[in-house]
Design a protein around this nucleic acid. Structure first.
Lengths: 225, 225
DNA sequence: GTCTATATCATGATAGAC
DNA sequence: GTCTATCATGATATAGAC
């Protein structure tokens, strides 16, 4: 056992990742300079290039650190539900809650930086840079396929195309809500302690999304004139 | 009548605004340099500073050009509906359709640049720069107040706090959908001609949002432990 | 692994001729 | 109003001492 257990092996890496998470969320990628970032992390300016190679590689590392475990947890949550009720299709609301819950539990992790990451993630879904969009899409693909299959089993009567659109809407609601959890006070006054209560938000979001997903289908399909 | 009607009076201004709309949407504000912008607009590098004063002032002008008329149209649409049915509260779905419709009609305006602006707007809602967020929020405030009042009349039994959250969710769904209308193909294949059919999208969005807004209220209000 | 110093380049903005 | 030339600044990245 090493005698110098005081200093963690990758402390510098971690400090950089934490600072990047916070600053990217606040100022965006292009808006965050390496000077500001390394100053905030209290590491040397050259440390980012030494540990990650480039700014772009740092961005990727920031997402991988949180997104890979989060998506694994999402898939595990879904598989646990399906194992508990073998054969039977799950209720749509149950599926939605499993997906939403993993994001929202991270919001409660203010100290560990989880909240910073969740807000960063929310705003990155609409990021224009193609490389970043492609990166995120790739990390999400297996999870999305898995949940799509579950929803198809839960709603066999819904046209596949309509389901895809509604999943798109649901994803948008979630990511916007995550990105702008503090912006809600712009719309109206709202008790701050409620804003950060992830359980309440989970209930509200799940109810909204489940109702939207189950909206009545028009019997007459409109055709272009 | 002037003899030189060939060259519009503010052609340079317009060319700059159009190029800015497109490039800001593609690369963000910080990611768009004045050099790229003026090259794309085929104007001189110094023209932006001459006509707008600074890059920040240009950003503001880009939003004002479209947002002021769009919000005026939204308020006019709501007032028209209320005039047609005096005294009676409007159906929630009718109110939603009025709000959503004004955005989506702009999507069909591909040639005039309306689509570029709508996608820019969608991605700007999650923009981290505070100055831009404040600018947009300020331009939107009167419209939001107006629609909130209409929804309160339409849904008198809904707790005000719940309504605020659901409006937040609806706004998020709309803005994400506008920002990522091409990203839907990442989730699943989708006929391109449908993607740009604003009428179909308006129907789909309105049905989803109206159902979410009208989601059943939990009888037992959860209290924090 | 960490640091200082610096190379190299792109940025927003402006001065001043036309 | 438009152009060229340029300034001052800040960016990422790296070389090389420690």
């Amino acid at each position: 056992m090493s005698l110098r257990a005081v200093k963690p092996p990758h402390e510098t890496r971690t400090r950089i990742l934490d600072a990047a998470e916070e600053l990217f969320m606040q100022h965006g990628f292009e808006g965050t300079s390496m000077r500001l970032l390394t100053t905030r992390a209290e590491v040397n300016l050259a440390a980012v290039n030494y540990h990650f190679g480039s700014k772009d590689a740092l961005i990727e590392a920031v997402f991988r650190r949180r997104l890979d475990p989060m998506n694994a947890a999402r898939i595990a949550a879904l598989e646990k539900l399906e194992t508990e009720a073998p054969g039977k299709p799950l209720a749509p609301e149950t599926i939605i809650r499993a997906f939403v819950g993993e994001s929202l539990r991270m919001i409660e992790d203010a100290k560990g930086g989880g909240r910073n990451f969740i807000r960063l993630l929310g705003r990155t879904y609409t990021e224009p840079a193609k490389a970043i969009r492609a990166l995120i899409g790739q990390m999400y693909a297996p999870t999305m396929e898995r949940y799509k299959a579950a929803l198809e089993r839960a709603l066999p009567q819904m046209p596949r195309e309509e389901l895809v659109w509604r999943m798109h809407f649901m994803f948008g609601t979630l990511s916007y809500t995550l990105a702008a959890t503090d912006a809600v006070q712009l719309i109206a006054g709202c008790k701050p302690e409620d804003r950060h209560d992830a359980r309440l938000l989970e209930d509200r979001l799940t109810a909204f999304l489940a109702a939207g997903l189950g909206a009545p289908l028009k019997t007459a399909v409109r055709k272009a004139a």
